[in-house]
């Protein structure tokens, strides 16, 4: 089935009760809930990332589960308003708390929990901090949330079948994190990029700035119709959606290299690098200096 870009008019499923997330059908059988551009709070339940699900003939795959058990349950409630099919797969695009902490909501249907092969190790090292800071940010709203434990690990690629609907999973070398996994729906040409794609909200570098630029090159070769970014609109045109993020990362890498060549210290570099990008991103001041620190401590080892 071929869908012409722009023909599909997404239908928004009305939230019948307030415990179900609002989701938008961005392509036939693909629903996405849009995260807000903020830090986690008791009110938003940690719902700051885009999360969604894909419905096949036999089963459903959830792609990222949100920032708390409660957000995961609200996502499940949204699914149940649309389809009675079982959730057989929970796919985690990486290990950041706003994407994974809703996993527990789906435990009852015993899904296969899927992640990048590096995820268990990297999450284990960070989980204590993640739990502590999410508890302090969300309080009661975070109660019951547990650390996910994915058993189906993807080293390079993997495929799952939802019933006449095949999803292709691709694991990336270190980029946004060292455990980035994308999901491609063959039926509609839709790619879930996870946080390999930030739109509107400033990208955060928790892996490798150079690796991320390489990942964008690789992503551009994917023949997709549209993308679901980890943060930003629920759906965006492909591959133009990558442009802003690629420009930001390129500016950070280029200006950091220049600062290093000029003998600027880490402190000097964090004050100057990337400032031209300030008007282009939400939460710029919360993340830019940290991104420059990450880029500087990576690039200073270049010859």
């Amino acid at each position: 089935m071929i869908l012409l870009a722009g023909i599909w008019l997404g239908a928004t499923a009305a939230a019948a009760d307030d415990s179900a997330l609002t989701v938008t059908e961005i392509a036939p059988g693909i629903f996405v809930h849009q995260g807000v551009h903020a830090e986690a709070t008791p009110e938003n339940l940690g719902g700051i990332a885009n999360i969604g699900f894909i419905i096949g003939d036999d089963s459903i795959a959830v792609i990222d589960t949100g920032g708390s058990l409660r957000e995961g349950k609200a996502l499940l409630a949204a699914i149940r308003q649309i389809s009675p099919l079982p959730v057989r797969y929970v796919i985690n695009t990486h290990f950041h708390p706003d994407h994974i902490f809703g996993n527990g909501a789906f435990a009852a249907s015993h899904p296969e929990v899927i992640a990048h092969a590096n995820l268990p190790r990297s999450l284990a090292a960070r989980a204590g901090d993640y739990l502590a800071s999410a508890r302090s940010a969300m309080g009661q709203s975070f109660l019951g949330t547990e650390i996910p434990n994915p058993k189906r690990l993807v080293g390079k690629t993997d495929d799952i079948d939802l019933g006449h609907r095949r999803l292709h999973l691709t694991a990336f070398p270190p980029a946004h994190t060292d455990a980035d996994l994308t999901v491609y729906d063959e039926k509609t040409g839709t790619i879930f990029a996870g946080d390999l794609l930030f739109m509107e909200r400033i990208p955060s570098i928790d892996g490798s700035v150079l690796g991320w630029l390489k990942a964008i090159d690789k992503l551009r070769r994917v023949k997709a119709q549209r993308v679901v970014p980890g943060h930003g609109p629920v759906s965006a045109p492909w591959p133009a959606a990558l442009d802003d993020e690629e420009r930001y990362l390129f500016v950070i890498a280029t200006e950091t290299r220049k600062a290093l060549a000029n003998g600027e210290s880490l402190r000097q570099a964090t004050a100057t690098v990337g400032q031209s990008e300030r008007p282009n991103w939400q939460l710029f001041d919360a993340y830019n200096e940290r991104n420059v620190t990450a880029a500087y401590t990576e690039l200073e080892w270049e010859e």
Binding site: S122, R126, G128, D129, P174, D178, S208, A294
Partner: peptide, 8 residues
């Protein structure tokens, strides 16, 4: 306690 190691 932060795992500064981004690429172990």
């Amino acid at each position: 306690s932060a795992p500064a190691v981004k690429t172990p």
